[in-house]
Design a protein around this nucleic acid. Structure first.
Length: 563
RNA sequence: GUCGCAAUAGCUCAGCUGGAUAGAGCAACGGUCUUCUAAACCGUAGGUCGAGAGUUCGAAUCUCUCUUGCGACACCA
């Protein structure tokens, strides 16, 4: 039932066509606090027509409005405030949530369309840092949100598994590395070799030539180089997967840059055929004046390919394989200009799905205001941060709930949940200056706070035992519960908006709002009391549990039943 | 230099398409566990919304200028 439409009608019946139905509907707003009602109509726009003071108009209209289907309608200043019928409203919402369960808020807007998401994309032989966390958890959450909106996301981990750096790495390994060390601790040792290469390289520039030759051998399919490359890739992926497992995130494909290495000719050919590729300073570029962009460099002057050459191949492949409804790239905001260029080139090529290509940028993670970089050693290892969080959660459990079953599992869910939630709760574009203590907070507006609220709800339901909520009267006129009821109602809209904006933070903020209102509710009202409202209250608790769990799930955060 | 993003309480941030006294969380101070897990709840204190101008009945929100910070500006990804 659309309550906004109901209120619109109530207003229209006391007007004489001064405003259209659409105008009234559009002007309705949600008051700042529930004390001012559930929906409000500002009458400013009628002041000129009626030649009266707004507050007079409001009072006048209220006296004419049929109030029988509301708890109350009142004039307050220039506003008409509508208070919905709590009993009827709550019965409706609670019934919906309990009937639909975790499917509550699901919609069909995506019509099953495929949406490849370019995300995570760590580089082989380098550690996963906090920087990758953002792309990974934002991409994962957007995938969940897309599913909730009827799309079919394809999580594509576009690994950085090709390029001249592998020439360097292979040279470095041959000179200073050994099999045993790599087997013991792949990433750390491979990075060590790589860093050493860059140190030595300053004194012995001939190393660069050697690396170039080695990469050439790799490209030509030379057996030894291919073998090493495959091995590095394999051990790196194994290490990555341990972290992804900890995060509870998986992917549909791992088609990295190497996968597209032999698929670049087609894109280049199309550009040539369309006469888009022109020479500039020895290199091949596509001019983008039409888009008010600088030319995009497609081939280096020595004919070598670039990042964009591979991305064009990738786009063609995805276009053909998935017939995508949208193409998403969850990549840092520092590449915004690059993605404008990529999109423009693809549009020029006539690639259909380029129209719905969206770069989903996010802010930088810095330490003391400085950018992270593997080479300089300014890096925050994600694995370490996750372990710190899990250990802290473990400690808290020993302190607060030592008899808890499945302690290790819960500690993992809470610790990891805190990190993921912490990343997702703010707008994507905000930069984050990394401070470990900030990440390891479990109180206030955090993941654990929402998890705790859910666990408390579950705890009440456990204590209630077997009660048939299906048959229960769900009409709950209790004003203490009202904030929670209205929050429950908002969920389907939040799901739609978060999808429209590609903003997981909207879900995170919503979950906090719902959790907060519920915490307040059960702190002030005892649920388990034998009276005629027991079934309604338990229905509320159950509904909150369902929606909190589903909200967290959309963020990629687990919701333990006890903690 | 050009383009993009940002600037709101001591700190970290909300504030939807302009609307009613600018909101949270941390930190500070005080209160609440014999009663559904105190990872919680309640209260106190804290703000010329970077500056200036404009549009409007009405601006933190829209437009312009300026200041400051961050980022991007072809042979890296």
């Amino acid at each position: 039932m659309d309550y906004k439409a109901q209120v619109t009608n109530s207003i229209l019946t006391v007007l004489n066509d001064e405003l259209s139905s659409a105008e009234v509907y559009q002007k309705l707003e949600k008051p700042k606090t529930l004390a001012m009602g559930d929906l409000a109509f500002p009458v400013f726009s009628l002041a000129k027509v009626f030649h009266k003071a707004p507050n007079m108009i409001a009072e006048d209209l209220v006296s004419k409005i049929d109030q029988s289907s509301y708890d109350k309608v009142e004039a307050k200043g220039a506003y008409i405030n509508f208070f919905l019928d709590k009993g009827q409203f709550s019965r409706q919402i609670l019934t919906d949530v309990l009937e639909e369960g975790s499917a509550y808020g699901q919609n069909d807007r995506g019509k099953g369309g495929n949406v490849p998401i370019d995300m995570s994309s760590p580089n082989i032989a380098k550690p996963i840092s906090m920087g990758h966390l953002r792309s990974t958890v934002i991409g994962n959450s957007i995938a969940n949100i897309l599913t909730k909106n009827g799309y079919h996301p394809i999580k594509d981990n576009h690994l950085g598994d090709w390029g001249t750096q592998f020439g360097k790495l292979i040279v470095a390994y041959k000179k200073w590395g050994n099999e045993e060390d790599v087997k013991k601790d792949p990433i750390n040792n491979l990075v060590k070799y790589y860093v050493k290469f860059h140190v030595e390289d300053k004194e012995h520039p001939e190393l660069d030539d050697e690396a170039r030759e080695t990469f050439k051998k790799l490209e030509d399919g030379n057996e030894e180089e291919i073998h090493l490359w495959k091995w590095f890739r394999k051990v790196s992926l194994e290490a990555f997967n341990k972290i992804y497992q900890k995060l509870g995130i998986d992917f549909d494909t791992y088609n990295g840059e190497a996968f597209y290495n032999d698929k670049m000719d087609e894109g280049i050919q199309i550009l040539k055929d369309k006469g888009l590729l022109v020479e500039s300073q020895g290199a091949q570029v596509v001019k983008l004046d039409k888009y008010n962009l600088n030319p995009a460099l497609i081939l280096k002057s020595d004919g070598a390919t670039l990042y964009i050459t591979r991305d064009i191949a990738t786009a063609i492949y995805r276009d053909r394989t998935y017939k995508p409804a949208m193409n998403l790239y969850v990549v840092g905001s520092e590449q915004t200009y690059y993605f404008k260029q990529l999109k423009a080139v693809l549009l020029e090529m006539g690639l259909k799905s380029a129209e719905d290509l969206h770069h989903i940028p996010f802010g930088l993670i810095t330490v003391n205001g400085k950018k992270l970089s593997t080479r300089s050693g300014r890096i925050i290892l994600l694995d370490k941060v996750l372990d710190d969080a899990i250990n802290l959660a473990q400690k808290q459990i020993e302190e607060k709930n030592p008899d808890l079953p499945h302690k290790d599992e819960v500690a993992k869910e809470v610790g990891v949940g805190a990190i993921i939630f912490g990343d997702l709760k703010n707008e994507r574009m905000n930069n984050i200056d990394f401070v470990l203590e900030d990440q390891l907070r479990f109180e206030g507006e955090t993941g654990p706070y929402v998890q705790y609220s859910h666990a408390r709800a579950e705890s009440i339901l456990r204590k209630a035992g077997d009660i048939d909520l299906h048959a229960a009267n769900k009409s709950l006129a209790d004003p203490e519960a009202w904030e929670t009821i209205t929050a429950l109602k908002d969920f389907p809209n939040v799901v739609i908006n978060a999808c429209r904006d590609f903003e997981p933070s909207e879900i995170a903020k919503y979950s906090l709002r719902l959790a907060k209102s519920f915490n307040k509710y059960y702190a002030h009202s005892k649920v388990l009391v034998e009276d005629d409202q027991l079934g309604a209250r338990l229905s509320l608790v159950k509904a909150v549990s369902i929606v909190l769990k589903e909200s967290l799930s959309l963020l990629g955060v687990k919701a333990p039943d006890e903690m």
